[in-house]
Write a protein that binds this DNA or RNA. Structure first.
Lengths: 213, 213
DNA sequence: AAGAATAACTAAACACTGTTCAGTAATATT
DNA sequence: AATATTACTGAACAGTGTTTAGTTATTCTT
């Protein structure tokens, strides 16, 4: 087999691998996660279900691949914020970006931060999940810089970062899972949940604002 | 059929309905949620799978029934705290209770606050979910009382309550889902995740503490 | 007490799911 | 042209939630 043909075939194989991924991503975000079957993905790319297993050993491996994509997307959201020089302003913008990311891509958000399966897959692979760590590193660094200009003076940087992340994550998951909506509707406080979320976020920001010495 | 026999049969039916529930609860907390099948529940109570559908129309209806139990358990955790007179101390204790509840009953916690299915079932039923609202009402009331003694003066009570709930929920879910562990291990900061959680919580409490005018 | 009605229960099936494996068809190498 | 390799798939396995037709067992009526 001459070199050109080998390359073409290799390219085709990688194309197909990507096709599976994009088909999966589309179905996941459309139908939701549990509702997407290997058979449905196979049908979308017009191959047999068994073929998918030649490119991904598991359904989890597919999820894991999307995982990496998702994190790259999130981190790219954050990287725009480097233009904001004031670290506290940057921290506030990060929070808003985080919420925005979760609201715009609820299924991907769940994939990254709620589902256990891809995480277990990562645990066996060691190698990656670097993307995920980088996102947290950005938060850690920003909190550190905030401390540099007088915020959060006597608080542990790591603990505070976890606490902030938890608040963001809690807001996003309560919104996505529908539990926030349920409590809100029961109270008829606020029908527009996006306003409720941003209201709660602004209130949280207000509490952080007061932590300047 | 005389009255005594009718009662006995009725009693037996309700017993069986409860037996299904306790079997389901046991399996859920043991094997996890997704891993528990109707067939497994049926085998545990030594009945046919089809019998379960005579007592519960859905798997979701079973989940929903456990839902109510779970909320009662959570609220009972909170009711002990009525002995704490200082509202801010009570709020702090509530947070700790909430975390403790989630750590001791991770599957029930997920059932109450993460899973969508039982929530959708509630949406069709209207009637209940009162238990869930009561839990949030307790938080709302406590935050209000804190404002009465000078805390959170210029903050919206409802928004702050949502924010606090989000923080608690975020900590618990990140812990339960394993995502907290993953980031922590990658940093080798803290192997004991329970210490990490309580550390993050204490840091959060410290931020709230400073919001007294 | 015998027959009709009702209630409780279940075997078996349906339409799914993820996954595996033997086997086929197409391509490349010798 | 014959062989080896690669890409792919049909069919099956073991499992899922759920439904339905049918079988017992119990109760009511005559």
């Amino acid at each position: 087999m001459d070199m050109g043909v080998a390359e073409r075939k290799e390219r085709h194989k990688e194309d197909l691998k990507k096709d599976i991924l994009t088909a999966a991503k589309e179905l996941f975000t459309q139908k939701g996660f549990e509702a997407t079957s290997i058979r449905a993905i196979a049908e979308k790319i017009e191959y047999s279900p068994a073929t998918i297993y030649l490119y991904y050993k598991d359904k989890n491996e597919i999820v894991h691949a999307l995982h990496q994509d998702g994190f790259r997307l999130l981190v790219s959201h954050f990287e725009v914020l480097n233009t904001v020089t004031n670290p506290f302003e940057r921290l506030k913008a990060m929070g808003r970006s985080y919420i925005q990311f979760a609201m715009q891509n609820p299924d991907i958000y769940q994939l990254l931060f709620v589902m256990k399966e891809p995480l277990e897959h990562v645990a066996n692979c060691f190698e990656d999940w670097h993307e995920g760590d980088r996102a947290f590193d950005i938060l850690l660094k920003t909190v550190g810089e905030c401390q540099g200009i007088g915020y959060f003076k006597d608080l542990d940087r790591t603990m505070l970062s976890f606490s902030i992340w938890s608040t963001m994550h809690g807001m996003c998951t309560l919104r996505i899972s529908g539990h926030l909506g349920h409590v809100a509707i029961a109270r008829a406080n606020q029908v527009d949940l996006d306003h409720l979320i941003s209201g709660a976020y602004e209130t949280y920001v207000a509490t952080l604002e007061k932590l300047k010495s």
